[in-house]
Nucleic acid binder design. Structure first.
Lengths: 229, 229
DNA sequence: CTTTAAAACGAACGTTCGTGCTATATCAAC
DNA sequence: GTTGATATAGCACGAACGTTCGTTTTAAAG
């Protein structure tokens, strides 16, 4: 009988430690940046030795890559997953935007959107880390674009709308809200981003689509939009 | 006889050197970040000694603050100045947006928008540097907002439009274009941002205002929509 | 010229960085 | 309980960091 490559038996402890490290690494990197994510600090924070921690990754770049990957997992779990519970088309598109903004507001990452920060840090720094960050953010943009296309296919959104253009605008509003919140603590920015997104979705939505969007708020709404259960 | 402290006579050389240093500092910081802006590297790049350079600022934080201030001067000279040559109201508002995008595209700062990068780097790092960056970006947002208000006062823009909301959206689109260009080299992003901005300006502009905007392009090269048939 | 303050330098400081080595714990499998 | 891989620690390294200090060069003022 061929023995199965043991990832579960022998290396159990190491894997657990690795995950613990990466959890702390994501948190630290979201605040200090992927370069400010220092092996010494990380080790101190986890009460372990630099070399012991280092052995799990072999190089700082590998640690950074693993951290980026861990952040992507968190993002998928916190944003993509929940949004995909909504039905295809306009509801899912809206949920993607809404939950994205919520995950920043909730502080899923202490430093706001992990990838916005990482992109700004690495965009002038060629290498595998930059490439991976770029790929992950493209995934997100592609997810947005595809949700738009699905809404069009479902007859909920004007088929004349350019999906890439709309995805660009939504992504920009997300970046803008993240920026305003991180730099000024401006919570209103989330409402502004939502308003701008909903305005577009409403304008482009067909009759069958518009009922799938949250009801329009009056100006200066004081109450929160009721969550549907 | 009381001697006058001449700032022009004795300190002339030092001031010139300081400006040379800051020019290089802005360039370096726009790529490597304000923390990656290292005194040693800067000195090497300028073929001078670390200590000689250091003496001009007294601390790294002072160097960072001076660099931020120098970047602000460049920005004012390259964006605000030219845009303010346009007449008040809608023309100036549009020029502010248009030239902002152009200054990123032209590579006025090697790393794209200096302040977008600096904000992302320092937003989780309290202190005078962060405060100054935040204040400067608020200046910009306020400039945008005021231009919108002026366009409304001139009867060129729908007075019902919330200036803060529109300024937020424009700023977001700028951040989005900067992001796409820095991370993917995507030049189309500038056109997308302009399209989104102009779409809003056109929709909100009065009859007297709409003639002040650039003519609408013929749907751009969007003929190739893979319309599924 | 001489005088003198500003400007630039060179060397060193104490830290921290990433990264090797070597030794010691830990723990699943026999 | 012994074994052997795996995981962690200890220690040292060279380089780079911001910063200090004492000295030397430079150039403006008398």
């Amino acid at each position: 009988m061929q023995e199965i490559k043991t990832t579960t038996g022998r290396g159990a402890k190491g894997e657990r430690t690795r995950l613990t490290i990466l959890e702390a690494a994501v948190d630290l990197a979201s605040v200090e940046g992927l370069e400010g994510l220092t092996i010494g600090r990380l080790a101190t924070e986890l009460s372990m030795s630099k070399s012991g921690l280092f052995a799990h990754f072999g190089s700082k770049e590998e640690l950074q890559l693993a951290t980026v990957e861990a952040a992507r997992s968190v993002f998928i779990h916190e944003v993509i997953g929940p949004a995909f519970k909504a039905e295809r088309g306009l509801p899912r598109l809206w949920k993607l935007c809404d939950i994205w903004l919520a995950h920043v507001q909730r502080g899923v990452f202490r430093g706001g959107c992990f990838f916005a920060a990482a992109a700004a840090e690495f965009d002038s720094r060629p290498g595998p880390v930059r490439d991976r960050i770029a790929a992950i953010m493209k995934e997100w943009l592609e997810t947005l674009r595809f949700a738009i296309v699905e809404a069009q296919s479902a007859g909920q959104l004007d088929p004349q709308v350019d999906p890439t253009q709309l995805a660009f605008e939504f992504n920009s509003l997300e970046l803008g809200a993240n920026w305003a919140f991180q730099l000024y603590g401006d919570r209103q920015a989330f409402a502004r981003a939502r308003e701008a997104m909903l305005e577009r979705l409403r304008r482009y939505s067909t009759r069958s689509g518009s009922s799938l969007l949250p009801p329009a708020e009056g100006k200066r709404s004081r109450a929160r939009t009721p969550k549907k259960g």
